[in-house]
Design a binder for these strands. Sequence first.
DNA 1: TTGAAAGCGCTAACAG
DNA 2: CTGTTAGCGCTTTCAA
Lengths: 341, 341
Amino acid sequence: MAKRVSIKEVAQEAGVSIATVSYVINNKTEQSISKETRERVYKAVDKLNYVPNLSARILANNKSNLVGVVIPQTEPNKEFMFSNPFYSEFLSSFEYTARKKGYHVLISGTNPDENYIEVAKKRNLDGIIVLGTYPKDTLEELKNSGIPTVIIDSYVESYHFNTVETDDCYGGYLATKYLLEKGHRKIAIVTGSFTEKGVNQERLRGYKDALLEYGITVNNKYICSGTVDFDFGLEIAKTITELKDEITAVFCTADIIAMGLMNGLYKAGVKVPEELSIIGFDNTFTSKITVPALTTVDQNIALKGERAAKMIIGIIEEKLKGKQEYIIPIEVVERESVREV
Amino acid sequence: MAKRVSIKEVAQEAGVSIATVSYVINNKTEQSISKETRERVYKAVDKLNYVPNLSARILANNKSNLVGVVIPQTEPNKEFMFSNPFYSEFLSSFEYTARKKGYHVLISGTNPDENYIEVAKKRNLDGIIVLGTYPKDTLEELKNSGIPTVIIDSYVESYHFNTVETDDCYGGYLATKYLLEKGHRKIAIVTGSFTEKGVNQERLRGYKDALLEYGITVNNKYICSGTVDFDFGLEIAKTITELKDEITAVFCTADIIAMGLMNGLYKAGVKVPEELSIIGFDNTFTSKITVPALTTVDQNIALKGERAAKMIIGIIEEKLKGKQEYIIPIEVVERESVREV
DNA sequence: TTGAAAGCGCTAACAG
DNA sequence: CTGTTAGCGCTTTCAA
C-alpha cells in the first residue's frame, strides 16, 4: 500500500505549520487564515493527494461521524437478518440520507454474546439505530450508555426513547375500515405472534377498533396468529378456506403472510378477490408482483429511513433536544385483491 | 455520556503499567506475563468495564478490522441501492461471516462525486468489496490504491482482480438446456441491456451455446433486451404474446423480469405453464411466491456473501496470496413454471 | 516478567 | 495571521 501522506507532509510541502493545515482543511471559521496561505495548503493537499486519517481525528475529537445500525436476527438460528425486504429498503434510504450529511453507516447483526454497546464504544459510534424489538433491559442499558439512540418500530416504553414509528394501530384500523367500506362485514385477521406490545398487537387493536366502530363484535375464531412469514400464510390457507362461507375478507398484518395465503388459496382453488378479498400491510415491493396485485397498507419505508437518519444526526449535533418522536404517515394502496360486495 | 475509561485507568486499578495491560488484553504470546498479573488486569478490566478504543488502536497499528462494501446506485436518479433483494441477501450473509471473524462492515452507496478510495483511506478500511459493474478506470484505481479488494459479479478484466462470481454463461446454458430437455425447441430469451461484458451478455452466451448444442439456430427475433426490472417484463409480455404460436418457452435472465412477464401474460390471458413455459434466473426469495412458483436458476447468494467475506479477510490477513477467484456453483431449481412438451 | 517512553495523525489551546 | 505543543488512547521497542 502506497505510504499514506500525513498532515505533516502537507505542511512541509506548503511551507506552513501543521496547525495551519488543520485549520484550513477543517474550514475553521474561528481562525482567520490569509487567502494566500489557504491556497498554498489546498495546492499541497491536491498535489500530495492528502486524505485525512479519521482515526486520528476521532481520537483527538471524540467524534466519529459514524452511526451504527443494529438489525435483529429475524429468525433465530438463521444468520440472515435482512432477507426481509423491509430492512433493505430502510437501510438503503437511511444510508443515503446519512451519507449526504457526512456520516457513514456501520451495520451489524446482533451477536447474542456480544453486547452492542461494546461495539458502539469500541468504534466511537456517534449514534445508534435499533431496528426491531429487544428486551427492555437491553434498551435501558443503551440509554444509560449515553450514546444517542433512535429506536425504530419498538413499543417498549416509547416514552423513554427517541423513536420513529409507524402508527400500526391506525394502520390496522385503516385496513379494516377499507374492507368495511367495501361492504365486507365478516373479516378475519391473520397475523404474527403477540409479543408484548409489538407491532402485531397494535395492528390487531386497530382491527378491533374499526369493527367496533361499525358495531361488529369481534369473533375470536377469525383471529389467526402465527409467524410472520410466507409459510404461515400458506399453512393458514386451509383454515381460511374452511371459513370461506362465513367470511368475505382477510386482513393480513404483513404482506409476506398475504402472499403465502394467496398462494395457498390459489392451490385450494379459492379465487381472490372474487371469492375472498385480501388486504396486506407494508407495501414491500413484492406486493405489486402478485397476481392479483395486493391491496395493502403503505408505511413508506423510505421515509422512515430518511427520518431516522435526520433524527439521529439532529440529536448527535444537538440541533434536536429532548425526546424525539416521529410517526410515519400511513395509507391504503388500492390494487386488485379486494372487491366490493 | 459517562466518561470512558482508558487503558491508563485500568493500569492504575491493576497496579501495573499500561504496557502490561496492553499485552494482556491483546493476548500477546510473544510477551510472557505472569498468571497473577494477568488476572489482576482482567479483574480491573471487568471492574471498570473497560472497552478498548479502536480508533487509538487503528492509529497505532494501521489495522482497522473494518471492511467496506460499495453498492451501486442500481437505478440512476434513484437513491436506493438495495431494493434489489439480491443485495440484501448478499450483505446479510457477508456481514454475518465477517462479524464472526472479528470484522465490522461499513456500507456505502456511491456518491458520484466522492471517490470511494477516499472513504477507504479516511476510515482505514482493511478491505473493500465492490458489488456490480464499474468503469474499468475506477477499478484500476482501486487496485493501485493497494487496498485489498474483491470484486463481485463484474466481468471487467477479471484476470486482474480478486473475484467472486457466478458462472453466468453456464447458468444461461443450464437454464436453456433444461428447457430443451423438457422438449422445448423454440425458446425466447428476455434479458437486460448488454453492457460490455456484463452478466446479461454471459447468460445470453450460455443460451446460445445450449441451442447450438441441440443444433438449433439462434433466431434474433427471439432475443428481447431491455432493463432488469418488473416493468420491462410486464411490457415485453405483449411481444411474447404475439410470439406465442411460435415459441413454447421463455428464458428470463432475471427473476424480477420473469415476474413482470408472468404478470403481463396473466393479464393477457396466456396460461403459464400450459401455454408457455418460463424459467428465471437468481432464485431470489420472491420466486417461490409467484403463482405458479417460478422455476429458476439458483446462484446461492448466501454462499456468495460468505465466500466474499472469507476471501477478503483471507487476503487482508495474508493467508491468501495472489489472485483469488471463486465461482459460485449454480443449479436449476425446479418449480412449476415449466412444463414438458 | 515488567515498565518507560516514543510515536501513530490530528485538534485546539495558547503564545507570539 | 501563524506556529508550538500537549494530549487523545493505544502499541511496541528497548531497557531494566
